[in-house]
C-alpha cells in the first residue's frame, strides 16, 4: 500500500499514472495555459485594462498640478469642467480633491490619480448600476495616468475603498458624465 506517512517503496518515480489522472493533468494544464493566454490577449484586444503610465511625484508637486487644473477648468454648479482631456483626482483624508467634475461621453480622458497623504483607493461606479464598479489603488508619491472613456451618461460616485483613517467611511466624491452634444 502507498501511504503518505511511509517512505514509498522501490522505484516510485517509474510507477505508472492512472489513465484518468493523466487525462485530468491534460485538462488542467490546457486550462492553465488558456487562462494566461486570455489575460494576455485581453491586454491587447480588450477594453478594460488597469494600465497607464506612472511618474514619481511629491504630494506638494501634485497639489500644484491639481490647483493648476482647477484654475484652467470651468467651474459650474455640477463641478469642474476640465479644459482638455486631462482630469486630476487627489486623495486626501477624507475627501477627493479635483471632484466634483463634469465629463462627456465618448471622450477619452486621462485620469491623473495620486494622494496628498496616505494610501487611498477609488471605487468608481454609476449611481444607476451599483455593480458596475472598478477599483484602483492610489499611492502617495506616485502619479498614475489612467485613460478612461465613458459611454453611459449619469452620476458617478467615487468611494474610498482603502482604509485611510477613522473618517474613511465619509470619503466620497462624484463626477457627472453628460451626453456629448
Amino acid at each position: 500500500m502507498t501511504s503518505p506517512i511511509d517512505p514509498p517503496e522501490g522505484d516510485w518515480w517509474s510507477e505508472s499514472v492512472n489513465r484518468r489522472e493523466t487525462i485530468w493533468l491534460g485538462i488542467a494544464g490546457v486550462w492553465s495555459l488558456f487562462l494566461f493566454s486570455w489575460m494576455s490577449g485581453w491586454v491587447r484586444a480588450g477594453d478594460q485594462n488597469p494600465t497607464g503610465d506612472t511618474y514619481e511625484i511629491s504630494p506638494e508637486q501634485f497639489r500644484e498640478k491639481v490647483d493648476q487644473y482647477k484654475e484652467a477648468a470651468e467651474e459650474t454648479d455640477g463641478g469642474y469642467v476640465p479644459a482638455d482631456e486631462h482630469v486630476y483626482i487627489a486623495g486626501q483624508r477624507f475627501q477627493w480633491d479635483g471632484l466634483p467634475a463634469v465629463l462627456e461621453t465618448g471622450t477619452q480622458y486621462q485620469f491623473h490619480f495620486s494622494s496628498y497623504d496616505v494610501q487611498h483607493a477609488t471605487n468608481i461606479r454609476p449611481e444607476h448600476n451599483l455593480s458596475a464598479q472598478m477599483n484602483f489603488d492610489i499611492l502617495p508619491g506616485y502619479e498614475w495616468i489612467v485613460p478612461m472613456t465613458f459611454d453611459e451618461p449619469g452620476e458617478y460616485h467615487v468611494i474610498c475603498s482603502e482604509f485611510c483613517g477613522d473618517g474613511h467611511r465619509s470619503m466620497h466624491g462624484t463626477f457627472t458624465v453628460v451626453d456629448d452634444e
Partner: peptide
C-alpha cells in the same frame, strides 16, 4: 452585486455627507 467595499464601518445604509 452591489460593489460594497471591505474594511469600512458604514457605507451601506449611510455615507456621511451625501445622500448616496
Amino acid at each position: 452585486l452591489y460593489g460594497v467595499p471591505r474594511r469600512v464601518a458604514e457605507v451601506v445604509e449611510n455615507i456621511p455627507g451625501t445622500e448616496f
